[in-house]
Amino acid sequence: MNRITRLFNIKYPVIQGGMIWNSGYKLASAVSNAGGLGLIGAGSMYPDVLREHIQKCKKATDKPFGVNVPMLYPNVEEIMQIIIDEGVKIVFTSAGNPKTWTSYLKEKGITVVHVVSSTKFALKAQEAGVDAVVAEGFEAGGHNGREESTTLTLIPMVKQQISIPLIAAGGIATGRGMHAAMILGADAVQMGTRFAMTTESSSHNNFKQMLAELGEGDTHLTLKELAPVRLIKNKFYNDIQEAYAKGATVEDLKAVLGRARAKKGMFEGDLIEGELEIGQIAGLLTEIKSVHEVVDDIIKEFKESIATPISY
Rank of each mutant, 00 (worst) to 15 (best):
S149T: 11
G145T: 07
H143P: 00
A169G: 10
V112H: 08
I90Q: 04
E139L: 02
A140Q: 01
D131N: 14
E147K: 06
H114K: 10
Q55A: 13
G137I: 11
I54T: 10
S163V: 09
Q161N: 08
L105N: 04
E139V: 02
E148K: 10
K159E: 10
Q126D: 11
V133Q: 05
E139R: 02
G170D: 07
L72P: 00
V130L: 05
F121N: 13
I172S: 12
A173K: 07
E139C: 11
D62F: 12
V67T: 06
I110C: 05
F121Y: 15
E52R: 13
S117L: 07
G141S: 04
T150R: 11
I54M: 03
T61S: 15
A128I: 12
N68A: 09
I84T: 10
A60I: 13
I82H: 01
K63R: 15
K56R: 15
H53V: 00
L105A: 03
A95N: 04
I84C: 06
A168R: 00
Q55D: 13
K59S: 14
K63P: 10
Q161C: 10
I164M: 07
Q161E: 11
A60Q: 12
V69P: 11
I110H: 04
I79G: 08
V76A: 14
K59P: 06
Q161I: 04
L152A: 12
E148H: 09
T61M: 03
F92C: 10
E86W: 02
P70I: 02
K99R: 12
K63G: 11
K159M: 09
V115N: 01
K63A: 15
E136N: 03
F121G: 01
H143A: 03
A132I: 07
I79M: 13
N68R: 05
F121S: 05
T153C: 07
V113L: 03
V67Y: 00
G96D: 08
N75W: 15
H53Q: 14
F92E: 11
Q81I: 07
H53P: 00
P98C: 10
A95W: 14
G142W: 06
I110D: 08
I155S: 00
I110M: 02
K108R: 13
Q55E: 15
I155Q: 01
I172P: 12
T102S: 06
A95T: 13
R146M: 10
V69Y: 06
G109K: 05
G145K: 07
A128D: 04
T150M: 11
I82K: 00
